Structures are given as structure tokens and as C-alpha cells.
Amino acid sequence: MKQIKYSLIMISLCILTSCYTVRLRSVNGTPQPDPFSDRDDYYRGMAVVEIDTVINMKLTSKDFTYLIKESDNCESGKLNIVEYRNTFGGVLLSAITFGRKRKVKIKYVCEKP
């Protein structure tokens, strides 16, 4: 009975420590506004672009580059806020596929043009 209890505690600690969010924000510039946004979180009144995808990488590649261009979503092509979220499911997918597939959740706000 003690072993089951300790195992459950260790599994829950692993799950909780593998979930985190990193947010980077520029000191210069202002975020691109979105007057029609109805968000109540940190991004209230900002035009947020959300990406939730799985990246396929080769075993030999060490990094991945996602290009952000000038478009309707990002008029200036410059970033003001970037948020990267890591979840337990993403860590599990990466571990099972030996790092070839990575689940990515990114939110970013462009600078005002």
C-alpha cells in the first residue's frame, strides 16, 4: 500500500513539474491592439495569434525555426510578446518519439505598425 502511495506522489510530481509557461515581452514598442477582443486574461485588448501544432524533426537536427512574416495576422512582422507553453503531453510525445515530434503551443502578439 505504501509503494502505491509513493508511486502516485512521484507520478503527480512529474506531471506538475513538466508543465510550465514562459512569456517574453519587449520593453520597447506597443502591442498590436484588437478592439474586438473579448479576452479576460493577460492578453486583454491585444491581437493574439495562437499556434498549436506538432513539429516533426530529424534526429540529427538540433533546432527548429518558425518564420513569422508580414501578414494579416502580423502587419509589422515584429514581435512584442511571445509565450511558449510546455505540457506533460508534449513531454511524453517527445520522449516516446525520441525527440522527433514535439508538441508546440505558442501565443504571440505583434508590435503596432
Rank of each mutant, 00 (worst) to 15 (best):
M1F: 15
M1E: 15
K2D: 15
Q3D: 11
Q3P: 04
I4M: 08
I4K: 11
I4Y: 03
I4L: 11
K5F: 09
K5D: 02
K5T: 04
S7Q: 09
L8K: 11
I9T: 10
I9W: 06
M10T: 12
M10A: 08
I11F: 05
I11V: 13
I11K: 03
L13T: 09
L13C: 02
L13H: 00
C14D: 06
C14Q: 09
L16G: 11
T17L: 11
T17K: 08
T17C: 12
C19A: 06
C19Q: 05
V22W: 14
V22K: 12
V22Y: 14
R23H: 06
L24C: 10
L24A: 15
S26H: 07
S26T: 14
V27M: 15
V27R: 14
P31R: 07
P31T: 13
F36E: 08
S37K: 11
D38F: 08
D38Y: 05
D40F: 08
D40C: 01
D41L: 08
Y42V: 12
R44N: 15
R44F: 15
R44E: 15
G45D: 13
G45W: 13
G45M: 13
M46G: 06
A47Q: 04
A47V: 04
A47W: 00
E50S: 05
E50Q: 07
E50I: 00
I51V: 15
I51E: 14
D52R: 10
T53H: 03
V54M: 14
I55R: 06
N56G: 07
N56Q: 10
N56D: 14
M57P: 01
T60C: 03
K62E: 05
K62G: 01
D63F: 05
T65H: 03
T65N: 08
L67N: 15
I68T: 07
K69R: 09
E70L: 00
S71I: 02
S71V: 05
C74K: 01
S76Y: 06
S76E: 04
K78W: 10
L79I: 10
L79P: 00
L79S: 04
I81M: 03
V82G: 00
V82F: 03
Y84T: 06
Y84I: 14
N86Y: 01
T87I: 01
T87M: 01
G90M: 04
G90W: 06
V91P: 00
L92W: 07
L93H: 03
A95E: 08
F98P: 00
R100A: 03
R102V: 03
R102W: 04
R102E: 14
R102K: 13
R102S: 04
R102F: 01
V104N: 02
K105G: 00
I106H: 00
Y108N: 07
V109W: 02
V109C: 01
C110H: 02
C110S: 02
E111H: 08
E111F: 01
P113L: 10
P113F: 07
P113T: 11
